[in-house]
């Protein structure tokens, strides 16, 4: 198979935006849950905005003070936020439309219908009583698209580019979620056994839909070390850094076999995986979790850019 560079770009970015909109919805859910389960101030919402990487834009528009209503609106639908859920799903749909010929009818219709549904659901500020329903709707629509991709797409280069987009975005998201809260994971910083910390750790797990999987894998006790172990190294956990790195390598390997060519992107991906394989929770904590996560994010961004060059996404 050979596809247009533009098509590869469209598939890659469609998948990134789909992943991004789901992450956005999940972070709002986490913020909402924190607000409901503890008598917190609006601090938590500032943290949610930073985790999503949209804190600066928010400040530019609304200033320092973060209120719950504004934060939710910013995350979900504010026109000035290019990474809002609504903007992301619209960008996914715009990309899908450009690569319409590379998608199955099922995938295109799933994306198009999801866009129309979410556009309607997010046409106005979401009322409190509707928030859970809207968040569930977003996740359901993204799952629907993912199901259509999974069930109907050929496992050829088009699929590989979709997967690359998904895992570049996901790797970045998980690393960012960890990075924003890295201090609560450090042994030195933890007020051992305090309920505040337990909540923080649980929040992290919840941000990546992993609280259930964690318990099944690691047991009932939520410990910072174990949380880090799980989200960085667990190969079975579909949002862990290791899983994302494996998937990036796997899809690039498919492309290499298909095209008979290995580009610089492959070397970056291999190095990324190797970096994780050679590390342990202890070594990472020793060198500094924050530095490690920063380095990881830089490598992932470089991988994304190199992929765009290797496969001629644009001129």
């Amino acid at each position: 198979m050979t596809i247009l560079g533009k098509t590869a770009a469209g598939l890659f970015w469609m998948s990134r935006y789909l992943e991004r909109s789901e992450t956005g919805a999940r972070l709002v859910e986490v913020g909402q849950r924190m607000a409901l389960t503890r008598s917190s101030s609006d601090d938590e919402w500032a943290s949610v905005l930073n985790t999503a990487g949209v804190g600066e834009g928010f400040q530019a528009k609304y200033g320092e003070a973060v209120t719950r209503d504004l934060a939710i609106d910013w995350m979900l639908r504010d026109r000035d936020n290019p990474s809002s859920v609504l903007a992301s799903i619209e960008a996914a749909r715009t990309n899908a439309r450009v690569v319409r010929t590379a998608l199955t009818r099922e995938v295109w219709e799933a994306v198009n219908e999801s866009f129309m549904t979410l556009k309607a659901a997010l046409a106005r500020r979401v009322a409190d009583r509707d928030l859970s329903e809207v968040l569930a709707l977003i996740r359901a629509r993204i799952a629907f698209v993912r199901g259509a991709m999974n069930g109907t797409m050929m496992r050829d280069d088009r699929y590989n580019f979709c997967r690359l987009g998904t895992f570049v975005e996901r790797a970045d998201n998980t690393a960012r979620i960890l990075d924003v809260k890295y201090y609560v994971l450090l042994p030195s910083a933890s007020a051992v056994g305090s309920s505040l910390d337990t909540v923080q750790w649980e929040t992290i797990l919840r941000s990546v839909s992993a609280e259930g999987s964690y318990r099944h894998t690691m047991g009932q006790r939520v410990r910072p070390r174990l949380v880090a172990q799980f989200l960085i190294f667990d190969q079975r956990m579909p949002r862990s850094l290791m899983f994302c790195a494996e998937m990036l390598c796997e899809n690039l390997d498919h492309l290499a076999a298909d095209y008979g060519l290995r580009g610089p992107a492959h070397d970056i991906a291999d190095a990324l995986r190797q970096r994780l394989k050679c590390a342990s929770v202890d070594s990472i904590f020793d060198e500094g979790l924050h530095d490690f996560l920063q380095d990881f994010q830089t490598r992932v961004a470089a991988l994304g850019q190199q992929t765009e060059m290797d496969y001629r996404f644009s001129l």
Binding site: T2, L4, G5, K6, Y259, L261
Partner: peptide
Amino acid sequence: AMRTTRGYL
């Protein structure tokens, strides 16, 4: 020729 993921075709 069109720009593909493998070069110009």
